[in-house]
Amino acid sequence: CVLFFFSSAFTMIFSFFLFDRTGTCLYTAEWKRLSTFSNPPEATAKLMYGMLYSVKTFVQRISPTEPRQGFHYYKTGSYKLNYFETLSGLKFVLTTDLNVGDIKEDLQAIYRQIYVEYVVKNPYYKLGEPIDSELFKQKLDEFAKDLSYFL
């Protein structure tokens, strides 16, 4: 219980989702969540994709300027959802606690240094299927733990 108090004073990251262009959830990861998802991760991922899609469409529709950009993050009372979409339609999602700043560069780094290197360049990986690679998992985990806001 005491731990809970401590941890809330630091910034943390909680979970990671990666979707492809068609909405298939390619990968999920969790760290340091204090509660488990109320649904199985697949169901959460499906809900999340629907939500991301709607928010993006809505945000673009009310955008007063061209080009109509998507969104980068939203905050609730207990977490922040950071979002990065590539031109090829990959969607990187990282939920963190509220204290982190702009982490767009970190999401881009995950794309460049981990997704491209260990997924795209892995000849055994079939495009559009969930990522089942130990190496990817390990590299992502290392990357996450190296982030300054990973407790």
Partner: peptide, 10 residues
């Protein structure tokens, strides 16, 4: 199909 991500990322 794969090259595009390498291209965009870099």
């Amino acid at each position: 199909l794969r090259l595009i991500d390498d291209f965009l990322a870099h």
